[in-house]
C-alpha cells in the first residue's frame, strides 16, 4: 500500500547522496516542512538503508505520503508528497 504509482510533478529535489542514517530522513523532513500541501520532494540517496527508513518514516508520520521508491543502481530514489 505504501508505494503507489500516481501522476505527480516533482516540486523539489533533495540531494542526500553520500549521507547515511539518520540524515536522509532528517533532511527529507526538513524539506517537507518548506513545501505546501500537495507538493512533492524527490529524494536521491546512496544509503541502502534509506529504502526502509523513508518507508517507515512516511508510514508513521502524519501529513506525508510515499508515492514511489526505486532502486536505480547506485541511487535510491524516493518521492514523497506533503498531504497536509
Amino acid at each position: 500500500m505504501g508505494v503507489t504509482m500516481t501522476d505527480y510533478e516533482i516540486t523539489e529535489t533533495l540531494d542526500a547522496k553520500g549521507l547515511s542514517c539518520p540524515m536522509p530522513v532528517v533532511k527529507t523532513k526538513q524539506t517537507i516542512d518548506t513545501l505546501a500541501a500537495g507538493e512533492t520532494v524527490e529524494v536521491l540517496a546512496t544509503d541502502a538503508g534509506s529504502m526502509s527508513d523513508l518507508a517507515g518514516w512516511a508510514d508513521t508520520t502524519d501529513g506525508v505520503e510515499l508515492l514511489n521508491q526505486t532502486d536505480e543502481g547506485d541511487i535510491y530514489r524516493h518521492v514523497v508528497r506533503k498531504t497536509a
Partner: peptide, 11 residues
C-alpha cells in the same frame, strides 16, 4: 542523538 533526530523528523 540518531534516535532523537529521527523521532523529531517523525514529528
Amino acid at each position: 542523538l540518531i534516535l532523537a533526530s529521527t523521532a523529531a523528523a517523525f514529528g
